[in-house]
């Protein structure tokens, strides 16, 4: 079984905040982390490998420092890591990202399964997984919350829906995007950390993966960010007064219309 997991390095979103005084982003000490959903994708890949045998390759597109998240994945049980990195990727939207990742996957070679996180917490788009599957012309299932049965030929799984879940079966090759309910990611073992330290990470440029320069970076992106601004300000504070009993009394009166 050959499994590829796409992992992205993202700023820890809870650290990204607007400075209320200056209305600019306060970024001091913002940590870069592995996208949380991708940790679950790595974990599931390693579990499937342990069950069915095979190899796990982790793949990321990003700046040179993204090797950190690839090493983290190796410390958690992945076997190989590939980073596609090139200044020419700057400004890539989800279309250009999925095109680039598809080129990299083709370069890596044959695979049975590709796992992605449901979404990356910096953009929250959830578009790269399906986009990558389309580029590779393979079926995909999004928001997988449980793998019920994994065999050499197919996966049976639950995909989360708004009103419950669907149970679906798919033959390899396929691409899945995963949610957090799927599993509990392991903490890296000491041995894993040693392996990660020594691991060779293959770094590929746009040219190495044979990407068409018109289809990568901003030039290859149909969408473009034209403005960023702080969210609208909040309203006035409105706190009731009096003893707790009086406040409850007032509240029930105010809510009469809803009772």
């Amino acid at each position: 079984m050959k499994i590829i997991v796409c992992v992205k390095q993202v700023p820890d979103a809870k650290d990204v905040r607007l400075d209320p005084e200056t209305n600019t982003l306060a970024r001091e000490g913002v940590q870069s982390i592995m996208n949380p959903y991708d940790q679950h994708a790595v974990e599931e890949a390693v579990r499937l490998k342990e069950k069915l045998g095979g190899e796990v390759t982790v793949l990321s597109m990003g700046p040179p420092q993204a090797v950190d998240v690839l090493k983290q994945a190796i410390s958690c049980g992945a076997d190989h890591a590939v980073l596609v990195s090139d200044r020419a990727f700057a400004g890539a939207d989800t279309w250009a990202t999925s095109y680039t990742l598809a080129k990299a996957v083709n370069k890596i070679g044959a695979f049975d399964l590709i796992l992605c996180g449901k979404q990356a917490i910096d953009g929250d788009t959830a578009q790269v997984g399906p986009g990558l599957a389309i580029q590779l012309k393979i079926p995909f299932v999004t928001c997988v919350q449980k793998i019920r049965d994994a065999s050499e030929s197919e996966l049976v799984m639950e995909r989360m829906m708004d009103d419950g879940y669907d149970v679906v079966a798919v033959d390899y090759p396929m691409l899945l995007t995963v949610v957090k309910d799927l599993n509990e990611p392991r903490v890296p073992s000491l041995k894993g950390k040693m392996r990660a330290k020594k691991a060779e990470i293959q770094v590929l440029s746009a040219e190495d993966v044979g990407a068409d320069s018109a289809k990568i970076g901003l030039a290859g992106s149909p969408t473009q960010v034209v403005d960023v601004f702080p969210p609208p300000p909040r309203g006035e504070r409105a706190i009731l007064s009096g003893s707790i009993d009086e406040q409850v009394e007032q509240l029930v009166e105010k809510l009469a219309a809803y009772l």
Binding site: T125, D162, T223
Partner: peptide, 23 residues
């Protein structure tokens, strides 16, 4: 931007080479 919309539309947009903005 429902479970279905956020799965179906990214695939369709990618096939068409169209720009897609989520959420």
């Amino acid at each position: 931007a429902t479970a279905i919309g956020r799965s179906l539309i990214p695939g369709v947009a990618n096939t068409l080479g169209a720009g897609l903005t989520a959420d």
